[in-house]
Each structure stands twice: as C-alpha cells, then as structure tokens.
C-alpha cells in the first residue's frame, strides 16, 4: 500500500501523518511527540543527520512526505536505543525510523541509496563470512575505500566523531575483531542460503 501523498496546495496536510500513524511500525505513538529534542540529543550520530528524529517527526506532521523519505535520518539510525529509553513520551523512535526507511524503498525514494547499499552489503557479507559477525570498523573501512582511496580517507576522517560516539554508546569496540564460536556452522548456513537463492533466483 502506498502512503497517501499530501495535498501539495496545503502546508501541514495531515494525510501523510495519518498514514504514518496508522501504517508505520510504532507510528501510533508518534502522535505523542512533544518536540523536546531528547531523541536528537541522545543520538550518537545526531550531528550527522540532516534533520534528526525530532525534527523529522515535525516534518511528518507538516506533511513533508518527500523531504521525510529522502532524509538521511531514516537510514543513519544505529539502533542504540538511547533515544527510545529517554523519550519522555515513550515513542519507539528506532522502529519508526527503520520502517520509514522501508517505506522509502517501497515508494522508490531510495535510488541513490540502492547503489550505495550494494557496496555496503558487499562489505557486510565479507565480515559475516570471515568472523560470523559484523566488525563495524572493518565493515565501514571496506565500504568507505570501495569509493577509492581518497574518498575512503575523506569519509573515514569525516566520521571520526561518530566512531567515538559509537564506542561510547558501546555500539563499536576497540581491539582485535571478535569471531563467533561456531563460524563453520554459520558458513554452512550462508552456503545453504546462497544455494537456495541460486536455485530460486533473487528476491525470494
């Protein structure tokens, strides 16, 4: 089902907001947001987000569908849940952002994101195969340098602060990469998954 597009002649058209309330995971509680900013202030990468969750929610109310679904805010959530536990109105912010990202994909607002995602998926799969888990540093490293050496260094430097914040909020660690215990089993599972995918084709 597509989100109802807002009436372009009307600022603060509520059709989009009402769609979000009713169809987005956790959207029901979005009505309760009182714009205090605890979420955007809690976010380890809040500074890197174009709007941050708080303002994004106001934009939903304002009917700014396109701006919301093309926002980087919905893609950048690292699921640390700091905003969720601190939200004084118990809005499940993480769920809402993730499901808005799904909506953006469904409605085709993700062209740029798609190309980007392919690079990221590659890095992710490499880490999963090697360690049985994601190592944030290596995944982002491979992902960044997939754009070329210069761009990779630029991206790496530009995101130092995020890295620091992620370490602080225990979303990233220092030291040797950890591997899971039963790496072999995981690799068997991945191989099986590949086999199924090969058999049925993409999009299974």
């Amino acid at each position: 089902m597509n989100a109802i597009s807002p009436n372009p002649s009307r600022a603060y058209d509520l059709n989009f907001a009402r769609y979000v309330y009713e169809n987005i995971d956790g959207g029901e509680r979005l009505r309760m947001c009182m714009q205090c900013g605890a979420c955007s202030g809690s976010c380890p990468i809040g500074q890197q987000m174009d709007h941050g969750p708080r303002k994004l929610f106001m934009m939903i109310r304002a009917g700014m569908k396109e701006a919301v679904l093309t926002s980087n805010t919905i893609w950048n959530c690292v699921s640390c849940y700091n905003c969720v536990v601190r939200c004084p109105r118990k809005v499940p912010i993480t769920y809402i952002l993730h499901d808005l990202a799904n909506l953006a994909v469904r409605e085709g607002f993700d062209a740029a994101k798609k190309a980007d995602n392919a690079r990221f998926a590659k890095a992710f799969m490499w880490s999963a195969r090697k360690y049985g888990r994601t190592d944030e540093r290596l995944v982002t490293g491979i992902y960044y340098f997939s754009f070329g050496l210069l761009e990779g260094m630029k991206r790496g430097m530009g995101n130092q602060k995020i890295a620091l914040n992620m370490i602080k909020t225990k979303r990233m660690h220092l030291g040797m990469p950890h591997a899971i215990k039963a790496k072999d089993e995981l690799q068997n599972i991945l191989a099986k998954a590949q086999e199924i995918q090969d058999r049925h084709g993409k999009g299974a």
Binding site: Y12, L14, A17, Y21, M32
Partner: peptide, 9 residues
C-alpha cells in the same frame, strides 16, 4: 495529542 491534534510552536 492522542486524538491527533497537531501542535505547532
């Protein structure tokens, strides 16, 4: 808010 009223500061 529950009733869906929009608040604009």
């Amino acid at each position: 808010q529950e009733a869906g009223v929009i608040f604009m500061k």
